[in-house]
Amino acid sequence: MHEMSLAESVVQIVEDTARRNGGTRVSSVTLEIGALAGVEIEALRFCFDAASRGTMAAGAMLMIDRPEGAAWCMPCGETVRVTSLGEACPRCGSYQLQVTGGDELRVREIELH
């Protein structure tokens, strides 16, 4: 889907951070991409390789953490685990769910040289 735009954002954030910290090369990039963030991980990896070419992030190892999906179930009155949108509460079967976690899209850290 929009993975190329996201990969370009990753590269922009990584280069920006590297420059501010006086680095010249980035050897690894750790992302947090939640299970409900609507991102195709393989597409993102492919796009990152393309978008990072010729930048300080070229050749960097891309590590991706996948926080689980979580939602507040109104009938249960508690947080439940969900693996995709449109899924029922695993406890009561209701769809009255409000996503509370798993939609992260973040650069967490980089390894800088």
Binding site: L6, S9, I13, L105, R106, R108, E111, L112
Partner: peptide
């Protein structure tokens, strides 16, 4: 290691 903690969007 440099902590970034910045949203892609």
């Amino acid at each position: 290691i440099v902590q970034v903690e910045r949203d892609l969007l």
